[in-house]
Simulated assay, not measured.
Amino acid sequence: MPIAYYITHPQVRIDAGVPVPQWGLSDIGRARAVAMLDQPWIGSIRRVVSSAERKATATAEILAQHLGLVVEMRERMHENDRSATGFLPPPEFEAVADQFFAKPHDSIRGWERAIDAQQRIMGEVDAVLAAGESDIAFVGHGGVGTLLLLHLSGREISRIADQPAGGGNYFAFDIEARRILHGWRPIDEPAPHHDI
């Protein structure tokens, strides 16, 4: 059974003076990405496909170098487009993100609509998976990752399935059946023994 892993970048270096897509990993985020390499599920991965945002590519490069692979970049795997507001202080960001998930057919403060972001990430995943069915890692972002997880689960868009705070989580799905095998887990913690 070929498995796809959707991995979100871990903690970033927040800089209000730098556009969000250009943020890199913080020291903690980089350490967590390196710790991920010790997890047993990593060894089966044969392709690494990443969003082109810097925090995602930094995570993907750590993984790909470890596996002797080349990162495949997909520009359209980016996080939901929030350029209309740019950086928002965390409390304000969380409030707008709540609205983004609660009203998926509306553009909240100029953000990309959740329904559009979901269709975009599904299109990217489907295009990549059409090219082969070995175990694959998608490296991206929490917002669109949550939208992907919800779609694969057959659930309506809401924030209930959002990844835990801080990033650096992953979920897995059966490529052939497009069925979720497990929800969000930290990238740097062992999986429960009863699971993959």
Rank of each mutant, 00 (worst) to 15 (best):
G145R: 00
R113F: 11
R155D: 12
A161T: 00
E156I: 02
M36C: 04
A172N: 02
A60G: 04
I3Q: 08
L88M: 09
D188R: 05
L67I: 03
R32F: 00
A172Y: 05
V20T: 14
A102L: 09
A95W: 11
F101C: 04
T8Y: 00
E189M: 12
I7F: 01
H182D: 05
D15T: 13
G43I: 11
G110N: 03
R54T: 14
D27I: 12
G86M: 07
A4R: 12
P89F: 09
Q39D: 05
F173E: 03
I42C: 09
S134V: 15
R30D: 01
G167R: 00
G110E: 03
L148S: 11
R32T: 02
I3W: 05
P190Q: 07
G168A: 04
A114D: 04
H194L: 08
G43A: 07
E176H: 09
R74G: 05
A16F: 10
R185E: 07
E133R: 15
R178N: 08
A131C: 15
G142S: 00
W23G: 08
A127T: 10
E61I: 15
I157K: 04
A60S: 01
R54K: 12
L181H: 05
S83H: 06
H151S: 14
A131S: 15
E124I: 04
H9I: 08
L181P: 00
R113S: 11
A64T: 08
H78M: 07
A172T: 05
D188V: 02
Q163G: 11
S44V: 14
R82G: 05
H182C: 13
I62M: 13
A84D: 05
A177V: 09
L69C: 02
L148K: 06
I28F: 13
G183A: 09
Q99F: 02
E124N: 00
A58I: 08
N169K: 10
R54L: 13
A161C: 09
V34W: 06
I121N: 01
G143C: 06
L150C: 09
I3M: 13
G183K: 06
R74T: 02
Y170P: 06
A33N: 01
A172K: 07
A31Y: 07
G132Y: 11
A58Q: 14
I121H: 00
Q99L: 14
D15F: 07
I115D: 15
W184G: 08
A165C: 08
R159H: 11
Q65I: 12
I175E: 13
L69T: 11
A4G: 14
A84E: 13
H9F: 01
R46Y: 13
I45S: 05
D81K: 01
G86L: 12
I157W: 03
L129T: 10
L129A: 09
I7W: 02
R74F: 10
L37V: 09
P40N: 08
R76K: 10
